[in-house]
């Protein structure tokens, strides 16, 4: 059969291409240009070569921020993914309460980042915040602005509060799409609850869970607003994640060169991780289609 070859529809993508060029490609090129130069403002630049990259790649400060960032992403994934699945399993499958659950779960997702930060910043304070006040009354000396571990606890709890629903909603959607016949077959075989989860629900949720992990990883890897509002990256540098360090460098000190080199390395890591996730996801789809 002769198929008509007509690729003119590609021209419809042009407006998006122009938009992306202005919002992403041109700024990215500018950042690359900055990364090999030094400036004292006034649009006057001096050639610096690879110096900034060397500085960033060998800087202890950047290394430790990278470590903290990985640890943060690891911790929140380790909490949010199992917790999200557990919540999805406990949610009612249909009826009035299913809708109520869905709406309640979606609420934290609708709150803007800086508001989430402010909520938790106040909640944790011993003088006016409920959580801080209760902990104080229980004789627990909770102070996230002095104690690094407390700062981590509040930042991680905040992220779990904000984003676990996303994982839960995705997992819930995955669960809903499993045909009833699978459960009936399991029942006939007298499969235990764990076996049903392990061999039916988990494999069927694999796709959406990968998306959930990808989304949560990316978001947590780029997190800025919430820790900035709550702890400001402190105490010391305990919760200074990559983006907080980067903004300090770029806007606080106006060191455009080092900041540009920093962002390019940051970008490369994100690009690598996204590519790995994307490849795994598309290959899973193909494996399922076969």
């Amino acid at each position: 059969m002769d198929k008509v070859q007509n690729n003119k529809a590609w021209f419809l993508v042009l407006p998006v291409l122009v938009l992306v060029a202005f919002s992403a490609v041109i700024p990215l090129m500018t950042v690359v240009n900055y990364s090999v130069q030094d400036t004292f403002g006034n649009n006057v630049f001096f050639w610096e070569g690879l110096g900034w990259f060397q500085e960033v790649l060998t800087s202890k400060q950047v290394h430790s921020a990278f470590g903290r960032q990985l640890m943060f992403s690891g911790i929140i994934l380790a909490i949010q993914i199992p917790l999200g699945i557990a919540i999805a399993l406990c949610m009612p499958k249909k009826g009035f309460w299913a809708s109520v659950c869905l709406v309640l779960m979606a609420l934290p997702l609708l709150v803007p980042w800086n508001v989430v930060g402010t909520i938790w910043q106040i909640l944790g304070r011993a003088d006016i915040g409920l959580l801080g006040y209760v902990l104080d009354a229980l004789n627990i000396n909770f102070n996230y602005s002095r104690n690094a571990i407390h700062a981590w606890i509040i930042v991680v709890t905040m992220d779990v509060w904000h984003w676990t629903s996303l994982v839960a909603l995705l997992a819930y959607a995955g669960l809903q799409s499993i045909p009833q016949a699978y459960y009936q077959a399991a029942k006939i075989d007298q499969a235990s609850r764990w076996k049903v989860f392990r061999y039916i629900e988990l494999p069927k949720m694999q796709g959406v869970l990968l998306i959930a992990i990808l989304l949560r990883f990316m978001d947590s890897f780029m997190i800025y607003t919430e820790p900035f509002v709550v702890t400001g990256g402190g105490p010391g540098t305990a919760t200074s994640f990559l983006s907080i360090d980067l903004v300090k460098l770029a806007l606080g000190q106006f060191d455009l060169g080092p900041a540009a080199a920093f962002s390019i390395m940051y970008f490369l890591v994100i690009l690598l991780v996204s590519w790995v996730f994307y490849t795994v996801m598309t290959n899973l789809d193909k494996a399922e289609g076969r």
């Binding site: 041109i26 090129m29 500018t30 690359v32 240009n33 900055y34 090999v36 130069q37 400036t39 649009n43 630049f45 050639w47």
Partner: peptide, 14 residues
Amino acid sequence: LNWMAWTGPTAIFF
């Protein structure tokens, strides 16, 4: 294009 701070090597790169 001054604001983009182009240099020879980065231009060649792109």
